[in-house]
Amino acid sequence: MLAELLQYLFTGVTLGATYALVALGFTLIYNASHVINFAQGEFLMIGGMSTFFLLEAGLPLPIAILLSVLLAGALGIALQKFAIAPAKNADVVTLIIITIGASIFLRGLAQLVWDKEIHAVPAFSGDTPLVIGGATLLPQNLWVLGISVIVVLALVYFFTRTLTGKAILATSMNADAAKLVGIKTQFILMLAFALSAILGAVAGVVVAPITFTAYDIGIMLGLKGFVAAAIGGLGNGVGAIVGGLILGVTETLAAGYISSDYKDAVPFVIILLILFFLPNGLFGSRSTERV
């Protein structure tokens, strides 16, 4: 019994870490520009697919990963510069549609440049499972968890200790005021998109050995990341991580104890319940509306 529960938790936490990384990507962009980037999932796809094809081309794994992450970062900047910045005064829904257009475009590009096949990226350090308390864990699961922790720590450091990080926070709080004190807000926005894309690509690479990768893998992961971000409260980093973990764990527990048919519905029921009682998610700030 206990071994089963442990197994569900292992799986749930690994899944949750993936969702949390996607949710952090949403949060970064949301904070800087109040845009919900529906193309966030595509950065995971680009990370995974690009790593696979660079490996195929004979590059060693670390270099393949580095190049893929840089590619995603560049695409993130391009997305901001060519799609979001020109439409900055548009409605919320309009921006959503633009990012949806961008995600379809990136998917279309990926299936042209690469292919429509499913690919397996080799595990970073073997496939031999570790047995802990009767439950098993793959070395790759540890990689996912480890990288997630490192990414989170790096982000905390970035936002609390560096000038650039603080500039992003300032821009998110009040763009006009930030501009007045000499922050280059356009540069900051681009940086936020690049960071978010890099984050997505890192997540995409590190989960690819477990989940495989294909040109259309970003749709579902992106959606789950959005759910995680909303559970935690949009724009809140801690909320994104907690939301991701809640989502991953409830999903596996639901599959294990309730019904695998309805496990995908459970997170949505949870989010509806949370929003009924806490309209700004778990950690979201109370919003005040200016008249």
Binding site: E4, Q7, Y8, T11, M220, A255, G256, S260, K263
Partner: peptide, 20 residues
């Protein structure tokens, strides 16, 4: 009798249930 979604990335939960 277990199921998984077409985009699911991990089925250990369902298989653990079958195993036990």
């Amino acid at each position: 009798d277990e199921t998984y979604g077409p985009q699911d990335t991990d089925m250990t939960a369902q298989l653990t249930k079958i195993k036990s």
